[in-house]
């Protein structure tokens, strides 16, 4: 990999974070990966640091992924933001699209995550 990127994972499931983190680090070795277990924590963290990738779970207690995605998109128009969810209802997909968020269906697999990031890297 040419350069190091920073990634923020937002998911209330520790398991999901571990999984996605493992998939990313095994393919993009030097990337920095931070985790937040809810939207508030995530908003705190983006105050201190700017991320290239933000992968956000949809179903979270409190603020949901779409709301958080909207706030993050407002602050970081250039960042890659993706909504990770098992819920592939058209309505949610449409909302995500309108907000300029990508959509990754759960469960996350190594292939899915790797291919997604690779394709985003290629278009940068």
């Amino acid at each position: 990999m040419p350069n190091t990127k920073s990634v923020l994972l937002v998911d209330d499931s520790k398991f999901a974070r571990l999984l996605v983190k493992a998939f990313i680090s095994s393919n993009f070795a030097d990337w920095q990966i931070d985790e937040a277990e809810d939207a508030n924590k995530a908003l705190e963290m983006v105050e201190a640091k700017t991320y290239d990738y933000m992968l956000v779970d949809f179903n979270m207690p409190g603020m949901d992924g779409l709301e958080l995605g909207e706030k993050l998109r407002g602050r970081f128009p250039e960042a890659v933001i993706a909504l990770l969810t098992a819920n592939i209802q058209q309505e949610i997909q449409n909302k995500a699209e309108r907000l300029g968020l990508d959509f990754i269906p759960k469960p996350p697999t190594e292939d899915k995550i790797r291919d997604y990031i690779a394709s985003r890297e290629a278009t940068r």
């Binding site: 499931s13 398991f15 949809f58 179903n59 819920n87 592939i88 209802q89």
Partner: peptide, 17 residues
């Protein structure tokens, strides 16, 4: 515990759609 929850949540999310 969290892993099982997440697996279930993924399933339930699919069911909802």
């Amino acid at each position: 515990h969290d892993t099982i929850s997440e697996l279930i949540n993924i399933g339930v999310g699919r069911a909802a759609s």
